[in-house]
Design a protein around this nucleic acid. Structure first.
Length: 103
DNA sequence: GGCCTGACTTTAG
DNA sequence: GCTAAAGCCAGGC
């Protein structure tokens, strides 16, 4: 494993444009470890680069807003994403067909 | 160096 | 179609 895994994760997450979202699986894959989706989430929760890492733009593989222990929880997360122009197919599910970030 | 935890994903019932 | 359980990866203690 590379010690730069988290570094990559943060960098990738940071590259997600406004109005788009990426899945944990996708980030894990781009980071070099397709199965490290959990580790990715863990890094998000630590989030040493808080404003530098838009963790709210990271969702589950199916677009569901998972986790987010911030102010308001997933509700706030949903609101922020929606405010950025992200399409929602459900109350807490993003429309990956139109709002998933493709590198 | 080894064990536990965790913002996930996938397969089976 | 939905719910439950198992598995995989990295970080922290």
């Amino acid at each position: 494993m590379e010690p730069k895994f988290t570094q990559k994760v943060y960098k990738i997450t940071n590259q997600i444009p406004k109005g788009k979202v990426a899945t944990y699986k996708q980030i894990a894959t781009l980071a070099g470890s397709p199965g490290a989706s959990r580790a990715v989430g863990m890094c998000m929760k630590m989030n040493p680069n808080a404003p530098h890492t838009p963790c709210h733009r990271v969702v589950a593989s199916d677009g569901a807003l998972y986790g987010y222990s911030g102010n308001g929880g997933i509700i706030k997360k949903k609101k922020m994403l929606k405010d950025e122009g992200v399409a929602f197919v459900d109350k807490t599910t993003v429309d990956l067909l139109t709002s998933q970030w493709k590198p």
